[in-house]
Design a protein around this nucleic acid. Structure first.
Lengths: 270, 270
DNA sequence: TTGCTCCTCACGTCACGTGAGGTGGC
DNA sequence: TTGCTCCTCACGTCACGTGAGGTGGC
């Protein structure tokens, strides 16, 4: 009996607020060893302090409670460590992302970059092998990498490539941050298809095009230039946006070397 | 007229979702250049794209919208840059904090640390100069540093110190993460007071005490040891918790060298 | 016995996302 | 004219925080 702590004592021993402890009880993440049935008073065992500490550390790292639950419920040490390592890896990439954003922010502030030149181009219908899927905004970069890796295993041995890797982005993808992406490689001939790859014809299109040089985090500059161009000089048309990957992570490890054409559909000039 | 974009086009040009754009309109952060009075259709000017980009970059860095508003509304470049630099500094310290947490997490996982030894001690009433204030959890470390700096300017020239820097933490501080802190330095004699410093007597107290070695981020281990000890061996008593700062940032730049006594009030042993 | 600790609702916060149900424009 | 784009509510999400109003325990 004296080995149980009140919620206040447990709060002091764990540095978790009383409100947070009640919340963790409500959602079943950390339930008191005993609850007085008449008063509802919560009593915690001192043996629960380590679990509380694990929760606190991970919350400090912004791990969602549902994931913390997985760590605490892990059937063995291996499973637990795997969950933790996964989270640490995600944190590291978030860190890299933060650093990249800070860098691009500094660039924006040190005098906005010069406007990108925009050209008009008609692209005829193109035979291609494609992988298409509905993809969420945050996972797009990873999804594209996987898709191109898969397409390369089909295209490259058959030597049928007629242009760089490219992708179509549904307008929905930008507007609700989830929508269809089509990764494609233009080809001639008819290679043997495997996996998710399909044969398709990319429809002809009139496009306003600009070239973005540098990491993908900065590509919104290209979209800005196209949006401005389209609205001020020509008429925007319906249809997916398009990116052509001229220099990619498959070619160089330095993001500053990446070159991407960004294309916005417009009405043909008469 | 043709230089205005629909919300969908603006979304594609800025990579902000339509829902987010409507939200920014609702709260007055980024309002369309024009709204059709009959249909309610929003029309954005291409000149608004740079502002949208600034919003997106900062949201990527988790800057709250209210702060972004300050950046956008800054009366001149200097004020704007100051707001940005402030945020970057905060992000850097958040980064350090993350790295520290990851480190301590790894320590916890590499076999939990050995239990800390706890001793019982009676401390008599102590004359001290104090600074007291209601402080929020997140600003406690900074507040204490400032308070001790101020106390030192009173205590050290007068050569009246009789013990290390110390602090009392109200139970409220732990339970609702905001409460009274009292920073104090035990003294003899009567120095001349300045600023926030007052003379006070710290009441006598029976305490369970343990020593924490290392950065403050890990101090919850000491609280855990005390909480366990108190609940399993003696009776906890009311009253503030207490920390004695034996080796501090004033003494060394290496957090691993910090030594802190943590004290939990208990009933006197009979 | 006082007053401190604990309790349970119910609602608020932040930055949007998720539908429902309906209208406008090419 | 179809259907795509846009509109406005109203409510949900996540991890608690903020009271209100009341009870229990030493």
């Amino acid at each position: 009996m004296s080995s149980l702590l009140t919620i206040g004592e447990f709060s002091r021993a764990t540095h978790l607020s009383v409100k947070a402890l009640r919340h963790y009880d409500d959602i079943g993440l950390l339930q008191p060893a005993e609850v007085d049935p008449s008063s509802g008073y919560r009593r915690y065992a001192s043996a629960q302090i380590p679990s509380a500490h694990v929760i606190r550390r991970f919350r400090d790292l912004d791990m969602p409670l549902d994931e913390i639950r997985l760590v605490l419920d892990a059937p063995d040490v291996d499973a637990r460590d795997k969950a933790i390592v996964t989270h640490l890896a995600r944190m590291e990439s978030a860190l890299e992302h933060t650093q990249a954003t800070v860098a691009s922010l500094r660039a924006v502030l040190n005098g906005g970059p010069p406007a990108l030149p925009v050209e008009f181009r008609h692209i005829p219908a193109t035979r291609a092998i494609v992988i298409r899927e509905v993809v969420a905004w945050d996972s797009a970069e990873e999804w594209l990498l996987g898709a191109f890796q898969e397409l390369h295993t089909v295209v490259d041995p058959a030597r049928v490539r007629t242009g760089p890797d490219a992708a179509l982005y549904s307008t929905e993808f930008f507007e609700v941050h989830e929508g269809e992406l089509i990764a494609f490689v233009p080809i001639s001939g008819t290679p043997t298809l495997t996996g998710r790859a399909e044969l398709a014809e990319i429809p002809e299109s009139d496009l306003a095009i600009t070239v973005h040089q540098g990491p993908f985090a900065d590509i919104d500059r290209a979209y800005a230039a196209l949006g401005t161009y389209v609205t001020e000089r020509v008429l925007g048309a319906d249809g997916p946006l398009r990116e052509h990957y001229l220099v990619t992570p498959f070619d160089t490890a330095d993001p500053n070397e990446f070159r991407t054409e960004v294309a916005w559909p417009v009405h043909a000039r008469v």
